[in-house]
Amino acid sequence: MLQIDCPWCGMREEMEFSYGGQAHVAYPKDPHAVSDEDWAQYLFMRDNPKGLFLERWVHSQGCRRWFNVERHTVTHEITAVYKPGEPPPAAKP
């Protein structure tokens, strides 16, 4: 069971959270302007790295807020937690 540091509530057990998959998957600005292939990229195609992964979680049994996590998919180590709209760790100056 992971322990996740909700940016609003602090350290909580994984069971309080729900997973939201890859973070920063942008909704196309105009969905009707993109090809079926590009629309499929948005709908279905996802990064699935073995290593650090930027992903979304929601504190569904707590504050019910979404946020982003940087986590290692092999060690499960969580290296960063940040709010929606904030830049991912690597993008920070």
């Binding site: 729900s18 699935n48 992964f53 992903e55 998919t73 092999v74 499960h76």
Partner: peptide, 13 residues
């Protein structure tokens, strides 16, 4: 387990 992982380990819950 709901989260992505390459660890062959899951959570006990």
């Amino acid at each position: 387990d709901t989260f992505n992982s390459y660890s062959q380990r899951g959570s006990f819950h």
